[in-house]
């Protein structure tokens, strides 16, 4: 079953056309990696899926419903988790409260229930020893793991990752990728914008290569990395191998 169906989506910022008619599908339980040069439109496409950017035209259906027709987008957004390149942990709250607040406000969970869920997911990402830490005192990799736990706390059915490791020091990349790998193995549907080709190759069911606002190639990793169909894909991947 298709979780995400995108049809002919266009998006302009001023005169710059970032998405020039994108068609794209993601099935339930699938892990899809979006790759491409910076400025190719992959982040914008991802942000259109949870309506942080509003497409100019085209159609996006998620869980079988046209997302532009929601009366209350908060209802929709809570089913779609998102992790950002810059983590965006709430800097007025500590690690635990970052995970508690959204549950209290979005799911209307009781304090005890919210703390319990928060501890469960913080443990899952290996941050259980830092529950009382201030978010300014933990490393980038730890921040991103907390951000993942925070997103999981509201029980999303789909996770979007916008270059989750691009702002990290090299030695911290792996700890975040390991967490993501675990989630993938558990069958969570994930769309990941990334430059980590090894991760993509290892974890993704499909890899989508974007260039200049369109999808150039959409193939399983073994095809993509060994004999890409498109010469632009080959040229792009050459830089990573």
């Amino acid at each position: 079953m298709s979780v995400v169906e995108i049809r002919n989506v266009h998006k302009k910022f001023g005169n710059l056309e970032v998405l020039k008619g994108v068609d794209f599908n993601v099935d339930e339980g699938e892990e899809v990696c979006l790759i491409g040069r910076s400025g190719s439109g992959k982040s914008t496409l991802l942000r259109c899926i949870n309506l942080l950017e509003i497409p100019d035209s085209g159609q996006i259906s998620v869980f079988g419903q046209d997302i532009m027709k929601y009366r209350n987008i908060n209802e929709y957004r809570r089913k779609v988790g998102m992790c950002f390149q810059q983590f965006n942990l709430f800097s007025n709250l500590n690690v635990l409260e970052n995970c508690v607040l959204p549950q209290r406000k979005v799911l209307k969970a009781s304090r005890e229930k919210a703390v319990e869920t928060a501890l469960f997911y913080l443990k899952k990402v290996g941050m259980q020893d830092f529950v009382n830490a201030s978010v300014s005192n933990i490393s980038g990799g730890q921040k991103q793991r907390v951000a993942i736990a925070r997103a999981l706390c509201v029980n999303p059915k789909l996770m979007l990752f916008d270059e989750p490791t691009s702002a990290l020091d090299p030695e911290m990349v792996q700890e975040v990728l390991n967490v993501m790998k675990t989630l993938a193995q558990e069958g969570l549907t994930m769309i990941v914008v990334t430059h980590e080709m090894r991760f993509a190759r290892e974890v993704a069911d499909r890899i989508v290569f974007m260039d200049e606002g369109v999808i150039i190639e959409d193939n399983p990793p073994e095809v993509m990395f060994t004999h890409p169909e498109n010469s632009r894909t080959a040229e792009f991947l050459k830089a990573y191998i």
Partner: peptide, 22 residues
């Protein structure tokens, strides 16, 4: 930072909740 708002909204928090708590 605008990222604070984006994170709160992406989690499903409303405009008002984001303003009050974040």
């Amino acid at each position: 930072d605008i990222g604070q708002t984006e994170a709160a909204r992406a989690l499903g928090m409303s405009n008002f909740q984001t303003m009050m708590h974040v």
